[in-house]
């Protein structure tokens, strides 16, 4: 599946004619979209429409019944060795952080490096300290996940997700279970990481504030037609510049996001 054109035209993920099923239940079909290098792509849609299922397919936890996912010029397939190589090139932030509860934060962030790099103990400790500082958790390295708040656990999960300096970062429901302020801070953190490290980010969310804050493009999954019905910049989708069915516009307008954003920008977060 290697070809130079894919690399040169900047598409890091290509999804073609994807069909996902749970047993015999059809979740989504005929999904076609690309994710470009360095962009933040939001996968949105109502609850239970298959957003998280799509994410699980993208990260190779489940495999499509039809169609293909090509990531970083490599097909996502159940082949163990290839999948493991691919997995070292992307990071995943799970909904609740999914930190390994028997290990401290520092050990959580260090484990992937200990397992997959030749870095020495001291070197790893330095990198871990810096990554924890990036997410605003310096000094918390020797805490266990159970001793932290939900927001801190997510940020620690983010530090772990970027442990191996991934090219793509997948984020599942970043704002779930967080108060609006912590959710915005997490959004801003992701945005800052993208800007400085040029990481491609794929986020699953239904939070309108998040969508307008960080998304370059938004893929709208529709439970009714069981496929994606829009894929464009969320602001353009809302004001009608980009072509989309009416229900996408309704979904985006319902949250009265523009006013909220205007006010939110005046709030000082620290």
């Amino acid at each position: 599946m290697r070809s130079t054109t894919e690399e040169s035209d900047n598409r890091v993920i290509m999804v073609r004619d994807l069909e996902m099923r749970y047993g015999s239940y059809l979740v989504m079909s005929k999904l076609n979209f690309d994710v470009l290098r360095g962009e933040i792509k939001v996968i949105m849609g109502g609850s239970g429409c298959g957003k998280s299922t799509l994410l699980r397919h993208l990260i190779g936890m489940e495999f499509p019944t039809r169609g293909s996912i090509v990531m970083l010029s490599q097909k996502v397939s159940p082949d163990d060795a290839a999948l493991t190589r691919l997995r070292h090139r992307f990071g995943v932030l799970y909904q609740g952080g999914a930190l390994w509860s028997s290990m401290t934060l520092a050990e959580n962030v260090a484990l992937p490096m200990e397992t997959f790099t030749r870095m020495g103990r001291k070197e790893i400790a330095e990198v871990v300290a810096f990554k924890l500082a990036l997410v605003g958790l310096s000094g918390f390295g020797d805490r266990y996940p159970a001793e932290l708040s939900g927001g801190m656990r997510k940020r620690a999960g983010l530090a772990r997700a970027i442990a191996l300096d991934p090219e793509i970062l997948f984020v599942d429901e970043p704002s779930a279970g967080l108060d609006p302020l912590s959710a915005r801070r997490l959004d801003e953190l992701i945005l800052a990481l993208r800007d400085s490290m040029k990481t491609t980010v794929v986020i699953v969310t239904h939070e309108l504030d998040s969508i307008f804050t960080i998304a370059d493009t938004a893929l709208f999954l529709d439970a009714e037609s069981k496929t994606a019905i829009a894929d464009a910049n969320p602001n353009e989708l809302r004001n009608g510049t980009a072509d989309a069915p009416e229900r996408v516009r309704t979904f985006l307008r319902r949250g009265a996001a523009p006013q909220f954003l205007a006010q939110a920008e005046e709030i000082d977060y620290d």
Partner: peptide, 15 residues
Amino acid sequence: MRVNDEIDALKSFGI
């Protein structure tokens, strides 16, 4: 650990 996605987190690192 499975309920808490920790097993998935291991897998997604290729561990």
